[in-house]
Design a protein around this nucleic acid. Structure first.
Lengths: 131, 131
DNA sequence: ACGGTTTATGTAATGTTATTACATTTGTTG
DNA sequence: CAACAAATGTAATAACATTACATAAACCGT
């Protein structure tokens, strides 16, 4: 449960995402980190892979972008399934967890002999400020 | 409510997806339709755009691929939100609709002043046959 | 401290997915 | 038939992601 020390590249990528106000694409991260010595996409993707694995970062499938986890302290997986709202105007992302949704998906899986791995729940729309 | 007549390209793309046993990427569709005169990605993407708009096809965000709708007859949007299980071994996709999940997402949106547009719900894992 | 293993890194090239721009054709409607 | 809208053809390019291979750093048991 003790988080391993992040490497330099991993920390740089996580910081970039934490400071951003909206999700960032891998290539946007790369550009932000040019001055820190980043030269190639792979440096970003490798750091992201690790951060995803640690639950410190989420990938938003519907927009091919990444965000820092909203509550990295306890290991995000403790919450089970994670859902997101994504504002298409300002990019604002809100992360939430709904036990009932989780149960319904699990029930469907059980009823169909489906063994669930990772789930994606993303709602695109407009946030309160951009409505 | 009467579905407009599909054009040749749209029909070809829809047929390719309907006959496939797993989701197809746009470029896979392109390859399948070379013999029918398809030469460029845009021909596929344009047909897909229209089919998506008509609700005859779904895009699976988490695998960047497309499937024919499981029940295109009544216009898929009549069901509201659509969810999918996706087998990572055989590619089998099952489409389903859960009113309770829909309600929970709507409730969260309402509580946060978020105006929902399109939602994505995809569960990757292994189907009964591949478990 | 040493050797061996695993993990992270650097770099280049390539593969995959999607869009922009522009010209042309087809279909529909008044 | 003229005018407009929708669909198509083609080429080029942009955006996202991975493979392959070489090097370096961190970790671990002796």
């Amino acid at each position: 449960m003790t988080a391993p020390q992040l490497t330099r590249n991993q920390s740089l990528v996580l910081d970039a995402l934490s400071q951003a106000e909206a999700p960032l694409s891998a290539y946007t991260i790369l550009d932000k980190l040019r001055d820190d010595g980043f030269r190639a996409p792979l440096q970003v993707y490798r750091a992201l892979d690790k951060l995803l694995e640690l639950g410190l970062v989420h990938r938003l499938e519907s927009i091919s972008a990444f965000v820092a986890c909203a509550h990295p302290h306890q290991g995000c997986c403790a919450h089970g399934l994670t859902a997101f709202t994504i504002c298409e105007a300002c990019g604002k992302v809100t992360e939430f967890h709904d036990h009932l949704i989780e149960e319904r998906l699990a029930a469907f899986a059980r009823d169909h002999g489906f063994r669930p791995g990772k789930a994606t729940i993303e709602v695109r729309g407009h946030c309160a400020g951009c409505a």
